[in-house]
Design a protein around this nucleic acid. Structure first.
Lengths: 213, 213, 213, 213
DNA sequence: TATGAATGAGGCTTCATTCAT
DNA sequence: GATGAATGAAGCCTCATTCAT
């Protein structure tokens, strides 16, 4: 929602063009964030943007194209946000920080949650793009941790699975704890601590369970 | 999809009634599984069921009511399925079995995945009911494992968070690995092994990370 | 709403039949009175009567037939009611009494108002029958008053027109003043007095207006 | 039914817009006049208007909104029509003229009758608006007549009641005498004369009836 | 490029009536 | 005669998209 220019002063053709498109983008973010994809009709979006319905089709092939661009765009903002909040500490600590920062971002951009959650079904292309963005970056982080000795005995393939688990858990928890009527609430401490424990010791004690049966 | 009777032999009124409702249920399962809730119009469902559109409203108040009944119904089938596949072994091993059995069930009832995934947005009431069904049972299992000494140092609140994480991870992975055009594929071994490791040792080594900073 | 028998003791075939039909009648009176003809679906009426939908068609050719029987039936109750309230006084006084009694009846049978008012459009056949019932009786009354010298210089044809005017005025006023949420209110005194004046002196003074121009 | 332009020559956007709305209005007038409100489906109206069903909703929020605008619109035409036909004569004579002119208008705009009569139930908002339009004007006329000495001894409250009676009688009579299959017939002379007598002398002779009993 | 009215397919739901039991 | 599930036509409304201005 990078509002380019609150006051239109003197824009050339190209700028006016981009400015209109941006208005539509911002409107879509608000509308989808508030009502969800299903209720995000072109009429509603253009009304919110303050342009005519026809204008929409000068900037997007169709409704779906816009919807599919929404999540990846904001998703990158999220990556930047989380990276900025991650200190230079031990890998396990970093992961907890990322976990927390994720929830902070949701509070910062409340629309994100709904846009993310519903995207899988309403904007599958955009969703896939977002997933790739995130998971590639995440696996890289885990590899680096392994090099540093903070992770042992996980293969690259297993990393990928782990990343998906973490993303899944995260998404799930965010839906469970972060929705609140009107605003977004913090995640309770016990969720954080459970996450830390799971990350550092696993759930079960080793006794009585051997890896190879 | 408990097809009561493939051939109508001689049913009394009550049975015919139930049979019709079941036909609608089965049809809905197929339609939602194939096209998703959003495309599951009453017209499509009744056509698939082989009844008139009006008949639908003799059995359900409205479209939403049916959609909200779909997941909890199949969800209980799933619980039974998983329970039947869980041996009397150490708690950690059991959890892995459950994890695997979940994916087996998806192959058994391929519609379940989509019905589950989309329910959160399209059938929120049914989704909540399903969630409660599952998470209550799950927390009980974890508590028992704690009593048996297989889990240490997790509080009840943390259990709840863990359950949500596990459910989230599971759902996510199922979407990632189980969709295939037309059919459903098995989950790769490295996903299982990654899961086992996460459960039994956590992700990170303890060195360099203290619980209290 | 002549509830034949509160307790069903021992009825033969014919009596049971009449009893069922009466139940449907009473139910229709309540339903139309409360919701209007448009909302008086067969389903609603039979539900209120406590019989199955199919039963309805054992007693009435179709929905319309019932609706058309409703008003004439209650209309005759009204005539009887008004007659019972009309004293043996001068014709003009009698007319005022009838006018008042009409509004009393509405309070006695609150369903009547709606059944009467909407009948013109939803049960035209029944409406016409009711109209004939009433207007024939009314003209007879006026004739008698003319014989007695209480009315002068009105022809039979003009009587008919007057009756229609009186009925029209009455119906209109009843709608204007008698509806109240839930119950029925009395008609204000000034309406009664305006009516009396109109009946006994007309609206305009004679000065300056000759009958023949 | 102010047909702006039978042939579309060269209209700008605003004009085209108004023109379409007018087409829908005219169509609705015809359809309601012919079939009544209950049968005036959006499909029928738009078909008659020669536009798509969806177009309807570009000009009216919903079906009811149009229906509620219909009567007040034509009602004002009627007021103008009647006023144009009312000469500068004695008040009583004027009232007779209005009475006659009302029936003339019905012959001029045959749809009006049905639109007026059914409005009370099918377009209550529009009906109320129309009523207010008319009755306010009517009471004003009566007051002026009282000032001029043409009416004596009626209070303002009684005026209001009288107006309602007159409107009721008029409506009733119009339904009784003006409907004819296909066309509209004139009102018989004896109705007019009965009306005049009622207005100028009342119905009953004074003898034997005192105002205070 | 911006506009916004026009389009028409498609969705959900209601309801009078039929008919097998 | 009573039942009530089944039927299918019809109604209102939404909405993505097109197109003339």
């Amino acid at each position: 929602m990078t509002q380019v220019n609150a006051k239109v002063t003197k824009l050339n053709r190209v700028e006016r063009n981009a400015w209109t498109k941006q208005k539509i983008f911002d409107a879509a973010t608000k509308v989808v964030g508030k009502y969800g994809y299903a209720e995000a009709s072109v009429a509603r979006i253009t009304e919110q943007a303050g342009v005519a319905q026809g204008t929409f089709y000068n900037h997007f092939e169709n409704r779906q194209e816009l919807l599919d661009q929404l999540l990846p765009k904001i998703g990158l903002d999220m990556v930047a946000f989380i990276r900025a909040r991650t200190g230079n500490v031990h890998a396990a600590r970093q992961e907890i920080e990322r976990f927390s920062a994720f929830f902070d971002f949701i509070r910062e951009v409340p629309e994100f949650l709904r846009i993310l959650n519903e995207a899988e079904f309403f904007a599958p292309i955009g969703y896939q793009k977002h997933l790739d963005n995130i998971s590639v970056a995440y696996v890289r982080i885990l590899r680096r941790a392994r090099l540093a000795g903070a992770i042992e005995d996980y293969s690259d393939e297993e990393f990928e699975a782990i990343v998906h688990m973490l993303m899944g858990a995260r998404g799930y928890l965010s839906r469970r704890y972060s929705y609140s009527q009107g605003g977004v609430t913090a995640v309770p401490d016990h969720v954080i601590s459970a996450y830390r424990k799971l990350m550092t010791r696993g759930l079960f004690t080793a006794s009585g369970d051997q890896d190879t049966p």
